[in-house]
Nucleic acid binder design. Structure first.
Lengths: 196, 196
DNA sequence: CTAAAACTTTGCATGGTGTGCAATATTTGC
DNA sequence: GCAAATATTGCACACCATGCAAAGTTTTAG
């Protein structure tokens, strides 16, 4: 077997704790929920809760799905227009995110109302941004350019999730398309010499 | 007088607490410093510390200088190329930031090693981003475009501060120029139909 | 100038947070 | 099965953050 029973149980417990955290946070706001309540809801001791997550905000955020190696390689080695290759990369990643649909929706609410949680997410996003910057450095020479592209790209994901959370009838993919259009139009405007 | 004695003393105390926090954090890492130590170093009681800031991370971040109303108005009403008007806006803001030079340098270190602190800063930055988005909505029709521009702009500030913190011989203004160049080049690359 | 109103500082009590440690229980590889 | 590795748990402890009430300071107005 590829993963041991132990490993699977660990993942399982971590997920149960995250779900318990998000559900309680959804009902009472995370700040009004104690770690004790979360642990009880997840069926573990308080101490075990802290063996999995250092605090309830980290439990709410969990471990966001990472970029796929294959997608990163495809982006770094791509030969199409840069914008198209990045968009394809984003589409693939958004697809992965969509699989955790309910978790992400609940998380969105928590993060908008909890600074500590948003800081923890920001930490993950920063790592992703750096990862993407390194990857894009293989397509563009200047590191600042790569960093700017990576920043624009990850914040498009952020805006897409925001839109999707606030517009009930929008699919995650459609929200990404809107955010992406906005990014492309912004790029055009920034390169324009004179006003509209 | 424009501000009362009370108000001036409040600002003063807040600043003393922030400085005490940053100095202690600089020596021992913020997480190893207790609120009690910070309060003692700032010459106030622990309870008073909490009357000013809800936690030590907030004390480290303090209250970042806001955008100037005049600059926002100039940007919203500007008639030059959008890129030029935004750059001018940024230059003015960076000038304000430069006035708190030592504070920002110390803060940078704290924020890079403390998730809670970076979440609090992220909260301020989000407010600035939203402010800028509203402002740019007067120059561009599509809100997603404005949001994308605002995101790219504020993250250029972030990258400039990062560069300035890591390259000893770089002025804050020069760092902004580098980050800005990166953004412009990224914009060109995103609008290019085929590969370089 | 003074007295009441408004606000600030402080100590104390209290309950939640997060870690180290040691005992107990479970899984794994042999 | 059994020993090694890993997980879970209770307990103790230090720190964090808030409410409250008493004491002190600044402001305002007569």
């Amino acid at each position: 077997m590829t993963v041991s029973l132990r490993e699977r149980r660990r993942q399982q417990t971590a997920r149960e704790i995250q779900l318990a955290t998000l559900e309680l946070a959804h009902q009472h706001e995370l700040e009004n929920v104690t770690t004790e309540e979360i642990a009880a809801a997840a069926g573990v001791s308080t101490r075990t809760f802290f063996n999995y997550f250092t605090n309830k905000e980290a439990a709410a955020v969990g471990a966001p799905p990472p970029f796929r190696e294959e997608d990163k390689n495809a982006l770094a080695a791509g030969t199409g227009a840069l914008a198209d290759d990045i968009k394809q990369f984003l589409d693939r990643h958004i697809e992965d995110l969509g699989k955790d649909d309910p978790i992400i929706k609940m998380m969105g609410r928590v993060i908008r109302s909890n600074e500590k949680a948003s800081g923890i997410l920001e930490g993950f996003l920063k790592m992703e941004r750096d990862e993407l910057t390194d990857c894009l450095c293989k397509r563009v020479q200047n590191r600042q350019t790569a960093a700017s592209l990576a920043g624009a790209t990850t914040s498009a994901i952020g805006r897409a999730i925001y839109l999707w959370n606030h517009e009930p009838d929008l699919s995650l993919g459609a929200a990404l398309d809107m955010a992406w259009e906005g990014l492309l139009e912004a790029s055009v405007l920034l390169t324009l010499p004179a006003r509209d």
